[in-house]
């Protein structure tokens, strides 16, 4: 049973690593600030949730479970707020957009 939970933890760990790595790759490869925010905020939330689930599966105590849930709730609130504020500030500072951007509702 312990081995089963360890393998479940390994699966969660690799899934979280996948999301984290895709986010870092997107931050390097995407063309402008808004695309990069899109990559950074969402994928890192999912990746960290995966890593926390892995820790909870492996250690299996109530202490780590409660703390993992606390960190998950905090992330689910904090990451979108940070991304939204940063995108609004970048729009206000007129950070240049990618040439292929199809619509800009803030242009007015």
């Amino acid at each position: 049973m312990n081995t089963f939970f360890d393998i479940l933890a390994a699966v969660f760990l690799l899934a979280g690593l996948f999301f984290f790595f895709v986010g870092a790759l997107g931050v390097v490869r995407l063309p402008d600030v808004y695309h990069r925010l899109h990559a950074a905020s969402k994928s890192s939330t999912l990746g960290l949730i995966g890593l926390l689930l892995a820790a909870a599966c492996h250690l299996g105590t109530a202490e780590v479970g409660v703390k993992a849930i606390a960190v998950m709730l905090f992330l689910c609130v904090a990451n979108p707020i940070g991304g939204h504020l940063l995108a609004k500030a970048a729009l206000k500072a007129k950070t240049p957009q990618w040439d292929g951007t199809l619509s800009d509702e803030s242009a007015g």
Binding site: V27, V33, R36, A40, L48, V71, G82, A89, A93
Partner: peptide, 18 residues
């Protein structure tokens, strides 16, 4: 831009958490 650097620093902090 500065926003690029800030989002990179944010993602760096999340990598430290990971």
């Amino acid at each position: 831009s500065l926003a690029d650097r800030v989002l990179a620093a944010d993602l760096l902090a999340l990598h430290v958490v990971g």
